[in-house]
Structure formats: C-alpha cells, structure tokens
C-alpha cells in the first residue's frame, strides 16, 4: 500500500468516526435530501391522469433513481471551507504535507457511508409504497437494470459528484477574497435544483426549454445518471463528454484560484 492510499484511508477513518459521533445529525441530513421523494408524489399523482408523456410507474422509477443520484452527489464543502477561511482555522491544515482538498473530498465519502443505512430504509419504503416502480405497468416493463445500466449509472454518479464538488469548491475558494461565498453559490444551486431534472423530468419540459437546458451542465448532474440507472436510452457519449469537459475546465480554474488565494490569505499563522 502506497503512502498515498494510506493517507486517504487515515482521513477516511477520522472523518467517518467524526460523522458517527453525531448520528442524529446524519438523520436530519437524510430528511433534508427527500425533495425527490416529495416530487415523486406530485408527479406520480399528476401522471395518473394520463395528461403527460409518461405514466405513474415511469415517474416513480425516475424519481427513485433521482433520489439515489442525489444521495451520492450531495456536496457541502463550501460551507465548511468558508468557515475554515473566515475563522482562520485553515492555517493548521496548510501545514500538513497533503493538499487539504483530499481531506474534504474524503469527508464527503465518509458522510455518504454514514448515510447508507437510512438511505436503504427509505429506498425499501419507496419501493414498497410504489410497487409499480419496479414491477412496471402497461407502459413500462419491470425495472431490471443490466450491467450497462449499473456500471454506466455508477460512473455517471461519480462524474456528477466530482463536477459538483469541483464547482462548489471553486466557488468556495473565493472565500479568500469575499465573505459569505456560500450565499452566492446558493444562486448556482437554484439553477441545479430547477434545471437538473430534480423537480421535474426533462421529458415533461417544453421541447425548446429541454434543448436549451441540455447545453448547460445541469441536467447531466441528475437527469443523465438517473436515466442510465433506469436502463433507458440516454445520450451516453454526449453526457460523459460534457461532464468530462466541465470537470477538466473547473479543475484548472480551481488550481489557479487556489494558488492565487493562498498568496492572498492572511489569517493568523499563514
């Protein structure tokens, strides 16, 4: 085992233990992520009427997939980083021989790991409540994800997490110059919320709006991984290329801002 993986494993152990200390808070986190389940109710009920392109079974399946995507792509690094910079607590972390970004990334994974039991219970509850989601109905067959769906969905989720993390962390780095960057990032989050397919599948968007939105990075963060998980045909190549281009571009911007920011950082001990 190289020194590198040993470090990451140590970080993971620390962060996992830290998260477990406050288990009650993890439960609240899980509640906070139930927006797709609210929308699941609204859209299955609306689809019952037959006024939309897809029926209730499809809608239920879509939003259960969105729920899973959301669980593994939640990012909160900006709040943590803003606090570290504004309070000056970033200084001791800079003394370590590892870039602190690794620690934040691993902390997110540890938090996801803590949430697994709650998510499993919620998932089973949804599948019991909406059996049509996995059983299928007259319009869609049963939900049997093949290997392509599983591997593709997992890869898309990882790419979506990486992109969201980079996006938020890059915004977070502006905390070196500005106070309350989290409030500014909230605006980006609203775009993700409404345009990513989290509150409504892209299939029910008007055609012009759908085509426009597909040129932004947002639907590839939620709608695309969810479609892959459902085993539905999706623009696979375009999806991964879009995600990849944005990841590379943001990674470059992130490093430039990080280096400039560190020069500007003037908290005690820096």
């Amino acid at each position: 085992m190289s020194a590198w993986t040993r470090r990451l494993r140590a970080f993971f152990g620390i962060e996992y233990a830290l998260m477990l200390t406050y288990r009650a808070e993890i439960l609240l986190w899980a509640i906070a992520t139930c927006l797709p389940l609210i929308m699941l109710g609204v859209w299955t009920q609306a689809a019952e009427s037959g006024d939309f392109v897809h029926g209730p079974a499809w809608m239920a399946r879509y939003f259960i997939a969105v729920f899973l995507v959301r669980q593994v792509t939640i990012v909160w690094v900006i709040h943590h980083f803003e606090y570290l910079v504004v309070s000056g607590r970033l200084s001791p972390q800079l003394l370590l021989p590892v870039d602190p970004v690794w620690r934040y990334a691993v902390a997110h994974l540890a938090e996801q790991a803590c949430r697994i039991p709650i998510v499993a219970v919620m998932l089973v509850g949804c599948l019991l409540l909406f059996p049509a989601a996995w059983r299928g109905d007259a319009t869609v067959g049963p939900w049997v994800p093949g290997w392509g769906a599983l591997v593709g969905g997992a890869l898309a989720c990882m790419a979506a997490f990486t992109l969201r993390f980079l996006l938020q962390y890059t915004f977070g780095l502006f905390a070196f110059w500005l106070e309350r960057v989290a409030a500014v990032h909230e605006l980006v989050y609203l775009l993700i919320l409404f345009l990513s397919g989290m509150v409504a599948p892209l299939e029910v968007f008007p055609a012009a709006a759908r085509d426009a939105v597909l040129w932004t990075p947002f639907p590839w963060l939620v709608w695309f991984p969810a479609k892959l998980m459902m085993g539905e045909p999706a623009p696979v190549l375009r999806g991964f290329v879009t995600l990849g281009v944005w990841i590379v571009a943001l990674a470059v911007v992130n490093r430039v801002v990080w280096i400039r920011g560190l020069k500007h950082y003037s908290a005690m001990g820096a």
């Binding site: 406050y22 009650a24 808070e25 609240l28 986190w29 509640i31 906070a32 139930c34 927006l35 609210i38």
Partner: peptide, 16 residues
C-alpha cells in the same frame, strides 16, 4: 443530541 445544525436544512426541505 448536542449537534443539530442541519435542523434548518431539514425544516426547509419539509416545508418544501
């Protein structure tokens, strides 16, 4: 439970 900073986020999600 001592540390429950996420109450605000959870409440906002429920009100949603």
């Amino acid at each position: 439970f001592v540390k429950l900073y996420n109450i605000t986020i959870a409440m906002a999600a429920l009100l949603e």
